[in-house]
Amino acid sequence: MTEYIVLSAILFTIGCVGVLTRRNAIVVFMCVELMLNACNLAFVAFARQHGNLDGQITAFFVMVVAAAEVVIGLAIIMTIFRTRRSASVDDASLLKY
C-alpha cells in the first residue's frame, strides 16, 4: 500500500518541479498531467484500501476534466505558437500590472 502512495508523491513532486522550472508550454502541460495522474494513483490506492469505489469514481472525474483541459490548453498553446513562433511560457507575459 505504502509503495503506491510513495510513488504517487514522487510523481506529484516531479510534476510540480517540472511546472515550476520548465519554460516550454508543452512540457509544462505534460507536468500538469503528471501531477493529475499522481493524484489519480493516490485516489485509486486509497479506494482499494478502504474497499469502496469512491476514489475510483473520483479518478474518472479527474480524467474527464483533464481530457477537457487538454483540448482547450493545447488549442491555446497552438494559437500562441502560430502567432509568436514560440511555445515559451515566459514569452507570453504581457498580461501584467
Binding site: C16, L20, T21, R23, D90, S93, L94, Y97
Partner: peptide, 17 residues
C-alpha cells in the same frame, strides 16, 4: 502589491504552490 502580478505564469504557479 500589484508588482506581484508580473505576467510570468511560473511565478503564479509558485505562489499557488
Amino acid at each position: 502589491m500589484r508588482r506581484v502580478q508580473n505576467g510570468f505564469v511560473r511565478s503564479y504557479a509558485l505562489s499557488l504552490l
